[in-house]
Design a protein around this nucleic acid. Structure first.
Lengths: 146, 146
DNA sequence: GGCGAAACGTTAACCGGCTAACGATCGACT
DNA sequence: AGTCGATCGTTAGCCGGTTAACGTTTCGCC
């Protein structure tokens, strides 16, 4: 019984584990790199903005940011113009991780797809995109339409 | 930047959400159906056995089983021949969910892949299998070799 | 100018998953 | 027969993610 959902689930898990392992080498937990990536692109963004671009709920970002503040990767400061906003700023440590983490991710991407021929990879991408479409469609429009 | 890891991650998330939604319709949380599936196949198995067949750690099964006992889906009883073993048994409620949950999953599988042509699906499966291989390989043999 | 609605971050309570430490039981071997 | 090691479940603590409820702060509108 090798149905698609099974295979995808297994792949998802092992991919997640591999990513976690890679990030661990830089003292990060899985997902934190995404948060950092947003700040690398534009420092000083708010939890809400970050949540939206990473496609996660705001509380998830808040919690994760808390841990990252404690880890010395970012800083939390209130916006003085709009006092209900909070802005997250990179520390030097957080900024320094950019290059190594980005290459780490590139390497993972490459290693994971290295057994695929060009056309194979293309078919994989397009088919996966279709699945993504179908799945998000049957989630009843209650999802972001990116 | 539509790399594979990104697309796979997004797909994974939306697929997870869809599965959760489907299981919710039967009063289950995501993952509990897998545990039930093992018992449907052979009732009275131990947490360790279940964990191995579902590819999850034992503590995960223990915790989930606790919630499912409380939900009246299964029963926890010690094995009297080997007193360190624990066996999980289906209740009528748990047994009754088999047919509806199995069709729910079949429907999801079908709906999610309905936009794929036959060959497309085949290519997707084989390519995904290759990715799975590569990823689990680079996890350094510390993974089950299924 | 004041009042109510909207926007925002935070907290709490869940769920699934993981690793590490613990405790109890069984078995093999001396 | 007794001990010591292997096996098994449980617990605790962490991480990422979710929804629901809450308290502030702004802003629009009368």
């Amino acid at each position: 019984m090798t149905e698609f959902l099974d295979l995808h689930g297994k792949t998802s898990k092992v991919l997640r584990a591999a990513a976690e392992l890679g990030m661990q080498r830089h003292g990060l937990h899985l997902g934190q790199n995404h948060l950092l990536a947003v700040l690398w692109e534009e420092d000083g963004r708010t939890p809400g903005e970050i949540a939206a671009t990473v496609n996660v709920t705001t509380p998830a970002v808040v919690k994760m940011a808390g841990r990252m503040v404690e880890a010395g990767l970012i800083t939390r400061r209130r916006d003085d113009r709009d006092n209900r906003l909070v802005r997250l700023w990179l520390t030097d440590a957080g900024r320094a991780l950019r290059e190594p983490v980005e290459t780490e991710r590139r390497v993972l991407e490459q290693k994971v797809t290295e057994n695929l021929t060009g056309p194979e990879r293309d078919h994989l991408m397009s088919a996966l995109a279709k699945v993504y479409q179908s799945a998000s469609a049957l989630l009843g429009g209650a999802m972001p339409a990116d």
